[in-house]
C-alpha cells in the first residue's frame, strides 16, 4: 500500500514536473488560456466604475462614449464576435482581434478585468434592472403611438430608427426614458438626421448614412435610400439631430409602462 502511494506520488510529481516544463514552454495563446480566470475577479461596482474610466481613455475613439460603436463594434448589443464569456472578453482586450483595427492592450490584468466588467455592463444594461411599469400596457402604447413607423421589433416595423428588438437588454431604464422624453440627448452617429434645402425642388430630410465633401447619402423619412450631390444643396442643416419626436406629453404612468415594454424586449437570445 505504501509503495502504491509512493508510486502514485512519484507519478504525480513527475506529471507536475512535466507540466511545469510544459508551462515554461507555453507561449502566446496557450499561456493566456492557462492563466486567465474563468470568471472576472474584478467585478465590484467600484471596479466597473474604474473600468468605465479606462474605457473612456482607451476605447471610446472607436466604440463611442456609450459603447454605441462607430469605427468599432457596437458594444451595447451584448453580442461579441470573439465570444462573450469573461475569459473571451479578457483575451479580446488583451490580444486584440487579428485582421481588424482592434489592437492589443498593454494594460495590466486587473485593469483589463475592470474594463471587461464595464463592457459586459454595457451589453447587459437592461438585465440588471427591473422595470416597475406594466409592459402589456406599454405595448399597446407603442402600437397606438405608431412607433413601428420608424422602429423595428423582430419582423415588425421599419428601419428608420434604431432596431428595438433587444433594446431591453442593451439599455437601462434611465436611458430608455431619456430617449423618449429627450430624443436628441443622445443620437448615435449612425442615426444622425440631416435636412437638405435644395436649390430647386422640395427639401429632403432623413438619416445621414454617409457623407463627404461632394455628396450626402441618406435614408429619407419614407425609407428610401437617397444620394444628393451637394452642389444642388442650398443649405445642409444638422440642428435637429434626431427625427424622433419627444413623448414628454405622455403621462408618468404611460411613460413608465412604455419603458417597461421596451425593457421587456430582450431579443432572440
Amino acid at each position: 500500500m505504501l509503495s502504491r502511494i509512493f508510486l502514485g506520488l512519484a507519478a504525480s510529481a513527475a506529471l507536475l514536473a512535466a507540466q511545469n516544463v510544459q508551462n515554461q514552454a507555453l507561449t502566446g495563446e496557450a499561456a493566456r488560456s492557462a492563466e486567465i480566470a474563468k470568471t472576472n475577479p474584478f467585478n465590484t461596482e467600484a471596479d466597473v466604475q474604474q473600468g468605465n474610466a479606462l474605457f473612456q481613455v482607451q476605447c471610446t475613439y472607436c466604440h463611442g462614449a456609450r459603447g454605441e460603436g462607430g469605427r468599432g463594434a457596437d458594444l451595447t448589443a451584448g453580442v461579441y464576435k470573439m465570444g462573450g464569456a469573461d475569459p473571451d472578453l479578457f483575451k479580446t482586450v488583451r490580444s486584440g482581434i487579428p485582421g481588424t483595427e482592434m489592437p492589443a492592450s498593454r494594460l495590466t490584468d486587473d485593469e483589463i478585468w475592470k474594463m471587461v466588467g464595464f463592457v459586459k455592463r454595457l451589453g447587459s444594461r437592461g438585465l440588471s434592472e427591473k422595470a416597475p411599469g406594466d409592459a402589456a400596457a406599454g405595448k399597446a402604447l407603442y402600437a397606438k403611438n405608431g412607433c413601428a413607423g420608424c422602429h423595428r421589433i423582430g419582423d415588425e416595423g421599419v428601419d428608420l430608427g434604431p432596431d428595438l428588438s433587444d433594446v431591453g437588454r442593451r439599455r437601462g431604464l434611465a436611458f430608455l426614458e431619456e430617449s423618449l422624453v429627450k430624443p436628441e440627448a443622445f443620437v448615435s452617429n449612425t442615426f444622425r438626421a440631416v435636412q437638405l434645402v435644395m436649390k430647386s425642388g422640395p427639401a429632403v430630410g432623413g438619416i445621414r448614412l454617409n457623407e463627404d465633401d461632394l455628396s450626402v447619402q441618406l435614408r429619407d423619412t419614407n425609407g428610401n435610400l437617397r444620394s444628393v450631390m451637394k452642389d444642388g444643396v442650398k443649405e445642409l442643416r444638422r440642428d435637429k439631430p434626431s427625427l424622433m419626436p419627444s413623448y414628454e406629453r405622455l403621462s408618468k404612468t404611460d411613460l413608465t409602462n412604455l419603458v417597461a415594454y421596451l425593457n421587456s424586449l430582450k431579443g432572440a437570445q
Binding site: L26, A31, E35, R106, D109
Partner: peptide
C-alpha cells in the same frame, strides 16, 4: 513590474503607460 499574464507580451512586466 505591474502584473501581466505570462506570455502575453514579449516584455511582460514592462511598464505600460497606455495613452
Amino acid at each position: 513590474d505591474r502584473p501581466v499574464a505570462a506570455g502575453t507580451l514579449p516584455n511582460a512586466g514592462a511598464y505600460d503607460p497606455g495613452l
